[in-house]
Amino acid sequence: MSLREARGPFEGTMSIVFACTSCGHSTAMLTNKAETQMVRSLGVAIGGRTKEAAPMEMLRSRLQGRRETPIAESARMGSKCPFTGVVAQAFAGGGQGMQWSEGATARLNRIPAFVRPSVQRSVEDYARRNGLTEINTSVMDAVKGNLGM
């Protein structure tokens, strides 16, 4: 059985026609307003999708009173990290001889740019106070979990 055609919506009702693939015998599924709405509410496409659902598809297509442009196209499409400049700057500021392990660096990069420099300073201060020369993820755990930052 395959989808032959979908008619409607006509005032909320639909006729969806399926046909036997070997003999062509057709069967129509009729939906009333409520049934049509139920299927739409699942966020699925009758007859299948030819391409992946767009982000926020339901919100952008079915919400009444939505903003004219609810989502802006990015001017920097392709850039994965909007904070690379800030990160570079923070690192350029220097750890004054403090070594950061790969794991710790990755965790630092996950912190919002706004607070990252102060976090870096706090962690390095903690390491210095404790006589450490390298910051690894255990040091970050200690700062995060025990010092009440």
Partner: peptide, 14 residues
């Protein structure tokens, strides 16, 4: 996503 802050949230339906 809403144009007006105080607008009720309604979904398009027949």
């Amino acid at each position: 996503f809403l144009a007006q802050e105080a607008a009720p949230v309604l979904w398009e339906a027949s």
